[in-house]
Amino acid sequence: MTQSLGDASASATRILPSSSPRSQARDGALAAGAPPGNALRPEDIALAAQQGAAKPGEDVANYALRLGDDALILAQRLAHWISRAPELEEDVALGNIALDQLGHARSFLTYAGSAWGKTEDELAYFRREPEFRSAHLFEQPNGDFAATIARQFIVANYQFPLYRALVNSSDPLLAAIAAKAVKEVDYHRDHSTQWVLRLAGGTEESRRRMIAGLKLMWPFVGELFEDDALTARLGDAGVVPSSLKAEFDRATAEVLDEAELDVSAYPMATGGGRQGRHSEHLGFVLAELQVLAREFPGASW
């Protein structure tokens, strides 16, 4: 179905080898309209919504809003690392992950918005803090590199089984968004795993920081796996959060055991993000995220 939603005029720049006859044939195919890789893009979802081919029900829209807000707030947090990471290479790695998350946010918010006649931008820039449905983990401050890695480690180990299960959603667009996202999140999981192992097994200082980072972030694990009335009503369209906890525990324990880290003693925070009750951090994130769009409505560049 993703193929029929293709819109070649919006396809991103891609570097293609230009000399061989085979690649010329491929260029021809590109010009004819199929975006390379047939990846589902937010523009495709917006187009489908315009044509009336994709309109989620109220529950699916609210569910997409939660997933979109998680990704949007995390993307904003991660983007802050650009030019501030320990090495240029990590600037790019965290920037790539931020852009992946922003892509997922755009898809989910575009889809959610199509239920209410709103664009992704209207949802991202013109909602107030209590209208955001992201979990508390995503708005936690970056802290040092180890704290950010601790947050990434939890996020990726939550999002990977979530999107893997959501691929089987009875809602075709949620399934399509998840199918694209799951491969990217798989890489985020690998990235954070590599760093948890290296920071924990590196120097005394890096280990101290890794432990401190996990202690900061781990209390926000609980909220991710809480079921509520919405997730119960969704049925086959969504994924029951509590059903992901066993896989999260298994996958994180595997890495934490190897790194000789213990998180079992950390208490859980109360949460409330899914109902729009946020910590003091989200307001500052939103102020930075929204100021331009609110100061200059309709601005583009």
């Binding site: 790695a93 690998d190 590599q194």
Partner: peptide, 23 residues
């Protein structure tokens, strides 16, 4: 070229730096 602490991270950094546009 790029900087990385070890070979495994060098491969990942290379993926991030040099294959971002389907190369």
């Amino acid at each position: 070229s790029l900087h990385a602490p070890d070979a495994a991270m060098a491969l990942r950094n290379a993926r991030d730096l040099y294959t971002r546009r389907n190369e």
